[in-house]
Amino acid sequence: MKIFARTALAIVGGYLGTSAIIAALSMIAVAMVGMERSEAATLGSMLGFVIYLGVMIWSFAEPALIRITLWLGAVTALSLTLVLLLGRFTS
């Protein structure tokens, strides 16, 4: 049962977390570094594969399931806040 939870967390949680992180990274690149927006979006998407890979490997290496959940949740929440704040700030 724990294995299923871990797998779901790695694949689904990892995907959602990665999506949030790259969204925040692209927005930071546009708002603070001044990158062109199509470039920031492309770069963010491509980084997604690397970040997702790292998150998946880590989810299977970290012994405590709760720690993965908390870390992923915290990073996702932080990224989404950044996306919302930057969105309001720039538009």
Partner: peptide, 17 residues
Amino acid sequence: VILFSLYFPSSIWAVYR
């Protein structure tokens, strides 16, 4: 990477709204 905009569209959504 061929299908980057299908697999990871969130960065495009975020930047383009």
